[in-house]
Amino acid sequence: MPAAWPFVWCPCPTRALLFAALQVRARLRPDAPGVESLPLGAVATFLLANLSLLFVPAGAGITSHAATLAEHGVGLITALVLSTAVTLAVTALVFVKVAGLGRRGDAP
């Protein structure tokens, strides 16, 4: 098993921190230009527009695990395909239904 397949730990707390800073900035200086016009905004927009690129190095490691995937074969592939489809459907339907309840204001 190739050990070298490193991943960075989720920097989600840092994201919350940046979000909080941006909210405070908008509150304190409501007339300041929006963050999208700052260099920070430009870099972030560029990174997110090319988010696919950032998964390529990790993705290229799949080949070294092709044998493991094939070993468990049909079961794993079926589980991945069906589970992904069902999860997409359930998540989106629950979102739309609950959002609809809220809008009518007669949620049970």
Binding site: C10, P11, R15, L18
Partner: peptide, 10 residues
């Protein structure tokens, strides 16, 4: 990029 997600969220 994960940190940059704060910007569209904002």
């Amino acid at each position: 990029a994960t940190v940059a997600l704060a910007i569209p969220l904002h």
